[in-house]
Design a protein around this nucleic acid. Sequence first.
DNA 1: CAGATTGTTGATCAATTGATAAATAACGCA
DNA 2: TGCGTTATTTATCAATTGATCAACAATCTG
Lengths: 236, 236
Amino acid sequence: MKLQICTQTHESSVKKPNKARPRTPIREQQRLDPSEREGIIAREAVSFFAEHGFEGQTRELARRLRITQPLLYRYFPSKDALIERVYQEVFVERWKPSWEKIITDRSVPLKARLIQFYREYAAVILTYEWIRLFMFAGLKDLGLNARYLKMLRERAFERLIEEIRFEYGRPSTRDLPITVLEIEMVWGLHAAIFYLGVRKFIYSMPLETDVNSIIDAKVATFLGGIRAVLPAKETA
Amino acid sequence: MKLQICTQTHESSVKKPNKARPRTPIREQQRLDPSEREGIIAREAVSFFAEHGFEGQTRELARRLRITQPLLYRYFPSKDALIERVYQEVFVERWKPSWEKIITDRSVPLKARLIQFYREYAAVILTYEWIRLFMFAGLKDLGLNARYLKMLRERAFERLIEEIRFEYGRPSTRDLPITVLEIEMVWGLHAAIFYLGVRKFIYSMPLETDVNSIIDAKVATFLGGIRAVLPAKETA
DNA sequence: CAGATTGTTGATCAATTGATAAATAACGCA
DNA sequence: TGCGTTATTTATCAATTGATCAACAATCTG
């Protein structure tokens, strides 16, 4: 018997065919356009599965949506299909192609590029939904995480190392493959940022520090440290 | 009317009283001493829940143990009690009090102490069971993770910072509280190591490098970096 | 070997839970 | 206003799943 909190977006459309139902102003169930309903379900599913994991029950999700459980199956053929949509919504849609441009824009100093990229990237992944869903997905296996990280490596990490090589006058990664040490350094930086999200959204430990300043510091340390593991300058 | 598949455990038990069973060396069901059975169940539960999460079904756990599902309830009053035992087994039993001595033993150079501690600590937590159970517990909430990390901070991190302060001639943490920056540096080191386990056991990404050498490198970087954030030397 | 003790199993319950189909009702259109 | 379309609900199924209890049987004791 919970308060009928209106879902902010629809209640106004109610008075559509006039008639002015002077009844309780309480939100009524309504018929929505399929695409709109589907979007609402998908959005709520993101939040729901992030909180409860993929074992969360469709009935409770429906309750949060203030619809009945079978209606979910009108829009998604199965629970797995809904989860697939959640992945799409979070791990694909939230990737910004502009990040790749930031990294490679040599008109900007390298350090500034790194800071800008990691700040923007952190703003996306350091959220309750992203961090928890990524972890839930990993524990469930599925190749999702490996696939995502492969993309992250190709689109961001490898370009990033190429830029660092260039900055310090080292051979291109096309001529001299990325070394284990180099990629390990990048992983280390990534770990530091990602772990902030783990502490906050999985361990429930409030961060005592500003994320951006942590990122700035980590990037500075990173740049200082990676020089030591770069391949030698092209001799002769 | 189900087929009476003999549950592999009894058919041979027919010829009951001893007599040197030269029969197939196949595992026999047997009456075990309660304490022994309990230990076996607890051990398998650790492995089982680490793999499937706490939503893993008691029936499948029982199948892995080659016992029937109700027998679990002879030794543990509920599934939650069994899970509680799993926590105990992994997060309490595996903590080594000797670690605290390693950190504070000033007859050994600081860097060597740090390396020894983190190597030993990593050997314990960088396991399939530890990493995954810790993450499952975190996602399920429960205060477990916060409690564990509080202990880790008190028993290890704070002593560690005290030793670093001493090494560099800074005021004791008893006189000057640990700063946010200091503890954040330690978290960073911890994150780097922990993330190795996440990559391996949650993302299923094989590590290409020796863990110990990574630890050595991280500790070295850490020691170099933390000097910069230590409080000023006691003046006058 | 008889009888007691108790570790173990088979049967079963009640609550969940993903999924389906028929009934209901809101909306658009003539 | 009446009718068709279809978004939504009600009712329900079948498989799961944590938990209980009486029956069974292995081991011990006298």
